[in-house]
Design a protein around this nucleic acid. Sequence first.
RNA 1: GCGCCCGUAGCUCAGCGGGAUAGAGCGCUUGAUUCCUAAUCAAGAGGCCACAGGUUCGAGUCCUGUCGGGCGCACCA
Length: 584
Amino acid sequence: MNIYTRLHEIVLETLSKIAASGSIPTDLSLGRVTVESPRDPSHGDMSTNAAMVLSKAAGMKPRDLATLIQEGLLSDPLIESADIAGPGFINIRLAPSAWREILSEILATGSSYGESKRGAGEKINVEYVSANPTGPLHIGHARGTVFGDVLASLLEKVGFDVAREYYVNDAGSQVDVLARSAHLRYREAQGEDIGAIPSGLYPGDYMIPVGKALVDEFGDKWLKAPEEEWLPVIRRFTVDAMMKLIRKDLGALGVHQKVFVSEQSLVDSGKVETAHATLADRGLIYQGVLEPPKGKTPDDWEAREQELFRATDFGDDVDRPLRKSDGSWTYFASDIAYHLDKYDRGFKTQIDVWGADHGGYVKRMKAATNAVTNGAAELDVKICQIVKLLDKGEPVKMSKRSGTFVTLSDLVDAVGKDVVRFIMLTRSNDAPLDFDLTKVTDQSRENPVFYVQYAHARCHSAMRLVGDTFSDIETDRASLSNADLSVLEDSAEFALLKVLAAWPRTVEAAALAHEPHRIAYYLQELAAEFHGLWTKGKEQPTLRFIIDNDETQTRARMALVRAVQIVLESGLNILGVEPVEELR
RNA sequence: GCGCCCGUAGCUCAGCGGGAUAGAGCGCUUGAUUCCUAAUCAAGAGGCCACAGGUUCGAGUCCUGUCGGGCGCACCA
């Protein structure tokens, strides 16, 4: 059990005992009572704000109330000391055995240490990537892809029933452009000289094989046919080809979404009409004329009456159009249908992961999801800021127009999937990210992927070598669970135990805040603590993991090493990074 | 002009439903290796947490405003 929640319970139990004795009211609101680890270790292992938060309602001075709580806490065997400090903090020091028990727990539970049932099996939908099916994924897609994938894993870890989805935008005018680009390549594949690709069409070489595949599939059937005949067929064919390409790229990154929802299918099945009708029934749609945006009026602006959704009723800045001037649905209209569709499939909690360029779209989508589900579904949108690709500190030039942009598969080929995945989470999603192709493969402290992997490899190294000294020490979990842990006494060992103890809380907090980068940070912290103890053993031989003449101590240290290894491994697993046992 | 995000050490960034004397890496200074991978570690210097108000026992964290940077702004997706 999470030692923080356990302490929290102890504090609450203490408070209820005090209330039962009549010293404080029994109906105090305890929601603000917290237990946390103080920044300053001299303040103890844990501290609680209970006395300060409750003093007003209890009608007592904080320090007087603290004294009552202190007495109650001291009767618990887990607690070694409790001191009152500052304005009314109660600083708690745990018995050493309480920390050592963390090891026993890790050895007993293995990779499931850190999991919880907090999500209680609630269905939650994470939609990410959702790149237009008009070409291969490029580096700009990589961040949101990793973010969404890891967030999904994280949510699973704390007990949610997670769906990983990709929304395929196969209905708009962009896929018509794609189809025309494919048709051009189709003509080329039949020997026609097509010259330069006209502007407005997709110029990339990745379209060449599509043209050839179209010939294989259809022969010359569409060569002379009018566009309205071949367009729907070639569009479908080409979108499918692009999605194959994209799924291959995702696979190389270790991403395997199960559900791909087609925008066109929502239109065809009438889902968009349904969503539209739902909003209309609630009186949220009207005919109106929008003001041109201030400060930046488009050249072709024309005031016209159109069908608008009352987004302003739900916190958006202006009402939003649902139909284009040609009468077809806007992207927004089908996206509303998509979010309603998710809700109809049982997802009351939805997360969308978008790039920074879509930030302006967040309010309207939240407004629409709220409106179309009558407030029953909640949408969180996570915006990932841009990735700046560098090489040795110099920006790598990219141009989508000339087709020289770096594709995701190029990136994975260059540095490996594990590096891409880890580095993408070394910043909060709100912060821009520098991705230096050279630095991320360095074997140095500067490279967090290496640093964490090295710690993990060192764990395995110690466990490989212990048999040379003690042939009867086995390093599997079950064997080590018999170790006598009471010989672990050094402060550096306890520092490590405390980091290990924080793992379940870190996982849960990261999951609930939808902030997977916290896992990457935690792993660096754990690795740093472990490297520190390792080096300390070089200076102070009694702290080495393998002690020649002391089998009991060695066994206890191996238990510690195994626990570190287990937590590093499970953290890397959440990130989708393969833990290595050896570095070369 | 409006909205969203950001502003923390020289640089790049963490800072966990508000908590005590604000952290890490890089860079700089000084050290540690007969021994489990020194591919590492330890110590030191370095801060009006952009600015001004407010909320409260307590604010880097919440609210308002100002300044600075990024992104976006009918009928693309």
